[in-house]
Design a binder for these strands. Structure first.
Lengths: 116, 116
DNA sequence: TTGTATGTCTTGTATTGCAAGGTATACAAG
DNA sequence: CTTGTATACCTTGCAATACAAGACATACAA
């Protein structure tokens, strides 16, 4: 039982949201996601995603020294990245609304009467 | 801008939820999902999913005559399918909780203090 | 040089939504 | 019987993406 498939198309939005809050580096993002309640995420998941987002100009990166290890690559959001985050939030709300409607067997035309 | 990726691992749960409510046939499921607010879903999405779920013994099917066309294949949930639906709901709540925490920048240890 | 912890990146695989196209039934019109 | 339309189901091939496994690099201690 895993949520692997469910993370598709959602993880990138989560990364954008975390990066928007403050500059973070890749290794740290995996830890952050755990703080938010997710199971540990592989670096093989995080890094390709960050590179893809950088290629799409959603984020920029700057290398900074670490106290204990190689240089860290800190990411921050571009204007385009902030826009994409807004789009993601819209898609996420759309998904949440519709899935919850299905689970409650309330069609869209039932609106929010919630009296079952 | 589409929610294609976000549907992965979620659509099957939605189908289980709809089928649990009442017997439905594949062609109808696409229409049902629209009633719940989703954009139109391709039959190339629905049918392979139903076949997969039947192979996994989550659903069973019976053919019944249609008033206007070939026989319909009506699906209903097995006990295993009901269990899987419960598991799905659990995963969905886990996902909802954690993504919403990320979007609000509330870590799991912040619990539900919501005073930001 | 060896070992440990910290950090980043690459390769290959599995899953799954979807477009495109094929097959089959019912019915009406000719 | 053929043609056209609506209904209904299925298959093939593609694209996107989370992930395991492993490679590579830096800092520091023994």
């Amino acid at each position: 039982m895993s949520t692997t498939q469910m993370m598709k198309g959602i993880l990138d939005g989560c990364l954008l949201a975390i990066i928007k809050d403050r500059e973070v580096y890749g290794y740290e993002l995996a830890e952050q996601l755990e703080l938010y309640g997710f199971d540990a995420l592989s670096e093989g998941t995080i890094y390709p995603l960050l590179l893809r987002m950088q290629k799409e100009e959603l984020v920029t990166s700057t290398r900074k020294k670490s106290t204990a290890g190689p240089k860290r690559k800190y990411y921050s959001l571009t204007a385009k990245g902030e826009q994409e985050l807004e789009h993601f939030i819209g898609r996420w709300e759309y998904l949440q609304t519709n899935v919850n409607r299905v689970l409650k067997h309330e069609t869209a035309s039932d609106e929010s009467q919630g009296r079952g």
